[in-house]
């Protein structure tokens, strides 16, 4: 039985109330979903909270899951949406007030000019702002297309594309500097 088929069975079982099946789904995807949350939030505590929230919502909404997309993608989307709700609330509460745009510019400028290429690449990706990082993770890791990324993040498609293009340009500069 391949992974998809067994997962399909698990999902169907969980949808009928099989708690063990849901536990198995949780075991399979908890780490991944935590990483999705952490990729966006960059805070361990918040990422774990949101991961728990995501699984709770998943549990409650599982009956509505139509198996049209992969379970992991569906759960990832729930998680990313939760992360963005969370960030929006934090911004509203003043924690990130108005800093996002400045930070993005500063990080983008700071991205270049590093010595060790490997470390530089890692740092470049790691030091991206929340919004840039989320775009890259959703596009490259979650394999979502630009329109889906834009829809989930509630930003224009052009913004998603410019962030991808900007990341490529910067990375290319690093690679060519060698």
């Amino acid at each position: 039985m391949n992974v998809d088929a067994s997962e399909h069975k698990l999902i169907l079982a969980a949808q009928t109330g099989d708690h063990e099946a849901f536990s198995e789904l949780t075991r399979r995807h908890a780490g991944y979903i935590y990483r999705v949350a952490y990729s966006v939030l960059k805070d361990q505590g918040e990422a774990e909270d949101l991961t728990q929230d995501a699984f709770l919502i998943c549990f409650r909404k599982l009956a509505n899951f139509r198996l049209e997309s992969s379970f992991r993608t569906w759960l990832s989307r729930i998680t990313v949406n939760l992360c963005y709700d969370h960030l929006r609330r934090k911004r509203r509460e003043g924690v990130l007030l108005g800093k996002m745009a400045d930070r993005e510019t500063a990080v983008a400028k700071d991205w270049v000019s590093r010595a060790d290429q490997s470390m530089e690449l890692k740092n470049a990706v790691r030091r991206l702002s929340d919004t840039h990082r989320a775009v890259l993770v959703m596009y490259y890791e979650l394999d979502l297309d630009v329109k889906s990324v834009a829809r989930i993040l509630n930003i224009p498609v052009g913004t998603v594309k410019s962030r991808l293009a900007g990341a490529r340009t910067t990375l290319r500069e690093i690679l060519e500097r060698g």
Binding site: T26, R27, A30, G31, Y34, R35, Y38, S39, Q44, E48, T51, Q52, F55, L121, K122, A124, V125, R126, L136, V137, Y140, E141, A167, R168, L171, L175
Partner: peptide
């Protein structure tokens, strides 16, 4: 390269111990 780095970064994120139990 960018895809690879993003995936590396993603996979290197440590998952807290006991996460599964808490979920």
């Amino acid at each position: 390269c960018l895809r690879r780095e993003v995936k590396f970064m993603f996979e290197e994120i440590p998952v807290p111990e006991g996460l599964l139990e808490r979920i």
